[in-house]
Amino acid sequence: MFIDETGASTKMARLYGRCARGQRLRVGIPHGHWKTTTFVAGLRLSGFTAPMVLDGPMTGPWFAAYVEQILVPTLPAE
């Protein structure tokens, strides 16, 4: 089993854009309400298992809680 983590942030904004020559490009971007969302899941040959979404970045205590409370119960007993 592999454990994979990915995330998205609302503070990402374009650095470049297009507009008519001689015109100024004005684009609204999120400002001041920056958030990070993290998705972590186990990956098996049969597909995803034990998915979890966090409202914030992954930290050591969050990872320990994920393994203990979500991932371990999905593992087969030997």
Rank of each mutant, 00 (worst) to 15 (best):
D4H: 13
M52R: 01
P51T: 00
R44D: 01
Q69P: 03
L75P: 10
H31Q: 10
G42W: 03
T6N: 05
D55T: 05
G7D: 02
P57V: 12
R26I: 15
S9M: 14
A41W: 00
P61L: 05
L43C: 08
E5V: 02
L54I: 03
A8I: 14
R14A: 11
G32V: 10
P73I: 05
M58E: 02
F39S: 01
H33D: 14
V67R: 05
L54V: 03
Y16L: 06
T6P: 01
S9Q: 14
T38A: 00
G17L: 07
L75D: 08
M58G: 00
W62Y: 12
P73C: 05
I70K: 08
V40Q: 01
T74D: 09
T59A: 09
T49R: 04
R24M: 09
H31T: 05
D55K: 09
K11S: 13
G42V: 05
T38C: 00
H33K: 15
P57C: 13
F39N: 02
H33N: 15
L75S: 07
A65I: 00
I29H: 15
V27C: 14
G22N: 05
K11N: 15
Y16I: 07
T38W: 00
R21K: 13
S9K: 15
M58V: 00
A41R: 00
A50C: 04
F39H: 03
E5S: 01
L75K: 11
P30N: 14
K11L: 11
R44A: 04
E68A: 12
G28N: 15
Q69V: 03
L75R: 12
Q69K: 14
G56A: 08
R24W: 10
G17D: 09
A64W: 08
T37S: 02
G22Y: 05
F39R: 02
V67M: 07
L45V: 04
M52P: 01
V53A: 00
G7K: 01
I29P: 09
V27T: 15
D55R: 05
G32E: 11
P61N: 06
A65G: 06
Y16Q: 05
G56P: 09
G60L: 14
V72F: 07
A65P: 04
T59Q: 07
I70S: 02
F48G: 02
R14W: 07
M1E: 06
F63Y: 13
T74Q: 13
Q23K: 12
A77C: 13
I70Y: 02
H31G: 11
H31A: 11
P30A: 12
T10P: 08
V72G: 03
R26C: 14
A8S: 13
Q69E: 08
I70W: 04
T38K: 00
R21F: 03
I70M: 04
V27I: 15
P76M: 04
E5L: 03
R18H: 02
M1Q: 10
R44V: 01
I3K: 11
R14L: 11
Y16A: 04
P57E: 13
G42H: 04
H31D: 07
V53W: 00
A41S: 02
I29M: 15
P76T: 09
F48I: 08
F63V: 03
T59F: 10
M58R: 01
L71V: 06
Y66E: 01
D4W: 06
H31N: 09
P61H: 10
P30K: 14
E5T: 03
P57S: 14
